[in-house]
Design a protein around this nucleic acid. Structure first.
Lengths: 331, 331
DNA sequence: CTGAAAGCGCTAACAC
DNA sequence: GTGTTAGCGCTTTCAG
């Protein structure tokens, strides 16, 4: 809690000006080597570290990459691990920022605007609603919103994954298959919806609107939708959820309703966050390589920061079906 | 990539001074309501957001909590989820920073010093080596280093957990039980070592120094130690690893050596990170409630930030044995 | 080789 | 009510 030494303290203690300290610390030319030694000795003694904030205000380069998330939930945490791993041996520090404050909309604008131009040299936005926000630094979006995007994007094959999931349920013998949708503003959500519909259509199963619920990736909304769907006399025998968190919530609701999973109801999610396999019963899902997503984003961002026009501005990674214990043939 | 509007731009566009903009934006008294309206209209139009950096330099309060980690690996990611969850409905933004740059020592000093005093109002340090670093803000340490600590601490019962793990191996019938230690500078590592030794002593099993390896929680070091231990003619029939990452590496080494886990070798880890249960075979381990650790730290930090002397400055949470597929009776 | 001075974007006193 | 002024801690010209 004691006061941190500033460059002024160092300058005073070393008997030089702050300008000289700055040069010595940053290894600029034009400082006598004995002066450098003396300054560095004082720096070590006082335990001085330059303030990231103050220096970034002037120099505009910080050596820090920012990852902007709405929230530190399982999905973004996995992304973060991937980004961290990819950056481990680089000269960049990593700063993850969550500034949503519950305001679902516009957090990315705010966060990016507050940090860019000063604190960070480049940014990775995770599931941003708005992509075309002004920023003074290169930005890569992971799993972004729908709509035109003139920004580099990294995402997974949500359509293909949804197709696999729904087909799998169909192959198990299900024909009354529900869907709990995700955030409607995300490309990936829309694609999962489309994949679900396509699989049904391919199999000649008519779409029952009563079996499509809106979850927005939020527990309460999922709960309401699942409750409504599962209380119907002609309730589905299987539900595909647009992400794992939703899938897990559905399993919970089913259990409260006394519906046995997977005997009476199959549930399959999307993402394969760690929580999916840890749950009891372990959630069947579609795996997307979240850590790879993060690493790919780092690669693109690095290119951008070096000023190269990126060769690819849109990376789409494959998904894989992971059947576990929440899927079975219908009763 | 276009330039972010600054307060000066807003002032110019609204035809007022920057001071007035600042007051209007921050809701200070002494501004005509029509002026406020006009300014806010411009703010909205330009998409202005105050720079977190610039404002924090002056006002010293930012509404941001910092979590300082060496690295975004599984353990700290879990902590982060817990912290994020605990902070979700608060008015605080969350900033996680990893500035280790591979320099194992001193990252916490550097990070804390670079961020505190300006960017963050309070900090949570995860597995810091140095605890007594100067900071201008309240700091809580999670699973900190050994040695005297005059700071609030949150940790789990490492001794008890290690005791459980080792006893479990003994109950399975093992008597040649190895141990791969963790970072020697952490309290928790020392406690796990002590728990291991105590369990052995309680069972009357003499400690074989050849069966104690140094891993430092680093894959390479673990690999070397495990290789050496497992190539001995009198190799252990079970190994207790000081954390899951180490445990997982041991399983891998065993597999390369053609040693079957768990038939020929039992392995048990510590932490229960998501990767443990996802591995094949699923790693037996000792669960520590990582997300709760994070939430507890938030609680203490909040108290500190409100200026109260904390009632408890040291929280120790219980651990629980989680047997999975890497432990079995000896051959 | 070193230091004085300007200024990054913003807020807080203090004048007007 | 509003503008002017003075910095926060640092880097960067530019004189000396």
């Amino acid at each position: 809690m004691n006061r941190r030494p500033t460059i002024t303290d160092v300058a005073a203690a070393a008997g030089v000006s702050v300008a000289t300290v700055s040069k010595a610390v940053n290894g600029r030319y034009g400082v006598a080597s004995e002066t450098v030694d003396r300054v560095l000795a004082v720096v070590a003694e006082l335990g001085y570290e330059s303030s990231l904030i103050a220096s970034s205000m002037r120099s505009r380069k910080t050596g820090v990459i920012g990852v902007l998330v709405a929230d530190f939930e399982p999905f973004s945490a996995e992304i973060l691990k991937g980004v961290g791993e990819a950056l481990r041996d680089s000269r960049y520090d990593l700063l993850a920022y969550s500034g949503s404050h519950g305001a679902a909309e516009g957090w990315e604008r705010r966060s990016l605007s507050r940090l860019s131009g000063t604190l960070i040299d480049g940014a990775i936005m995770v599931t941003p609603t708005v992509v075309n926000v002004g920023a003074e630094v290169p930005v890569v979006a992971i799993d972004p919103h729908t709509g035109p995007a003139d920004r580099p994007i990294v995402e997974c094959d949500s359509f293909g994954g949804a197709l696999q999931a729904t087909r799998y349920l169909i192959e198990l013998g299900h024909s009354r298959i529900g869907f709990i949708a995700g955030r409607r503003d995300l490309r990936s959500s829309i694609a999962r919806d489309a994949g679900y519909r396509r699989a049904l259509a391919d199999a000649g199963i008519p779409l029952d609107p009563a079996l499509v619920g809106s979850g927005s990736y939020q527990q309460d909304a999922v709960r309401v939708a699942a409750l409504e769907m599962l209380r119907r006399p002609d309730r589905p025998t299987a539900i595909f959820a647009a992400n794992d968190t939703s899938g897990l919530e559905i399993v919970k609701v089913a259990s409260e309703l006394g519906i046995d999973v997977p005997r009476e109801l199959s549930v399959i999610g999307f993402d394969d966050v760690p929580e999916a396999s840890k749950a009891t019963p372990a959630l069947s899902t579609v795996r997307q390589p979240m850590q790879v997503l993060g690493a790919e984003a780092v690669g693109m961002l690095m290119g951008l920061m070096e000023g190269k026009a990126p060769a690819v501005t849109h990376v789409k990674l494959p998904t894989r079906l992971v059947p576990r214990d929440t899927t079975a043939p219908p009763p």
